[in-house]
Nucleic acid binder design. Structure first.
Lengths: 206, 206
DNA sequence: GTCTATAAGGTGATAGAC
DNA sequence: GTCTATCACCTTATAGAC
């Protein structure tokens, strides 16, 4: 791939990610993506063939981070550390990929019409793996009995909300964008609720 | 208002609520709303003037339940009961108004472009009221110190997720729709996390 | 590889008959 | 009050010059 092709593709992906996140798939106009990327409209089609294909590329860009996020479940034997690290990672994804997170959330909210079965399967299998691990910790007496699926729903929701509903969060906090300290506060609060809720002691990880 | 007008308006509101929730504002076609309501397209305009006006009516239908949800903060002096009842009410809204909840969530996610300042102000003032109440409980020593704003973010996210991300929840649980028992499980889990996270004891309410 | 000009298709909205 | 037929506009997508 030529240098210029690489640069332009990257610019288009970034611009479209922001547009799709802010407006949603249908309300996003190719011309706006082109303007934001500083390129003429036909070039968008030259590089990505169609609006839907471009959208899918944006959507899939968040999948890898999401799949990697569950690594702590395998790395640590202690549920307090594993859950804490998982929450920390999920908050980091909301912070570092706010637009792609929002595109993913919007996709899910509307019934995942563009998500391929391949990706959907990978996410499901990851979820299954995490719930199995939690159930194991429970039967090993390492944490209090809890519904693993619903625990994950709460962790997902409370961490993703910092990307998905940033407008609301900005309104309430009075800040246009959250700083590192805010994300730290969020991470600590969610971790505290989850760990204490599972009968686990808070663990210090720098 | 004539009887037929009342019936038709109601049918249109219900149909459009579902359509807007499933597709989002831009992807929703008036013709589909008309078909779902069993009426010809021009009648939608006859009753609601424009697509945007119809959307706003749907959007505002969820505001009243949301504003009423915070009543427990005023009704109860005990934070454990107030928070527990608030969570129970928020889950009930997700269960009883799943489509309107989703429309509201989608609106917020895209920066609330259609929300009037009037409504936005009411929601903000309600939020301010709730955080003040929590801060008071903390300084009264009734609960452990906690960031009230972020606590609300987690409660909102974890309760709304049952409406907003119902597709994902259906995938994971393997159920098309959740039954009363599932909502019960969700309510208890979220309540347990929040109360124990705030150093409060679980309270039994009938 | 890049971009102007245009084709093709679809949607919100309404005029006007009933 | 209701509905058929149509307008006006906008957006995706591409042909073809450079």
């Amino acid at each position: 791939m030529s240098r210029i092709r690489e640069i332009n593709s990257e610019r288009i992906l970034e611009s479209s990610c922001i547009e799709f996140a802010e407006k949603g798939y249908s309300a996003t106009k190719i011309i706006d993506i082109a303007k934001k990327a500083g390129l003429p409209k036909p070039n968008i089609y030259y590089y990505f063939q169609s609006k839907e294909n471009l959208y899918r590329c944006v959507l899939e860009s968040i999948i890898e981070p999401l799949l990697e996020a569950s690594a702590p479940f395998d790395q640590y034997e202690d549920p307090a550390i594993a859950l804490g690290e998982y929450i920390r990672t999920k908050i980091r994804i909301s912070k570092e990929h706010p637009h792609a997170s929002k595109v993913f959330a919007s996709e899910i909210m509307h019934g995942a019409p563009h998500l391929t079965k391949d990706i959907s399967d990978k996410l499901m299998s990851q979820t299954k793996h995490m719930t199995t691990r939690i159930d194991q910790w429970v039967s090993d007496g390492k944490m209090e009995p809890i519904d693993a699926q619903h625990l994950l729903f709460t962790i997902w929701a409370s961490t993703q909300t910092y990307a998905d509903f940033d407008w609301q969060i900005g309104q309430v906090t009075g800040k246009k964008t959250l700083d590192n300290h805010d994300y730290q506060t969020a991470t600590e609060l969610i971790t505290r609720l989850v760990l204490k809720g599972c009968g686990l002691n808070l663990v210090e990880i720098k």
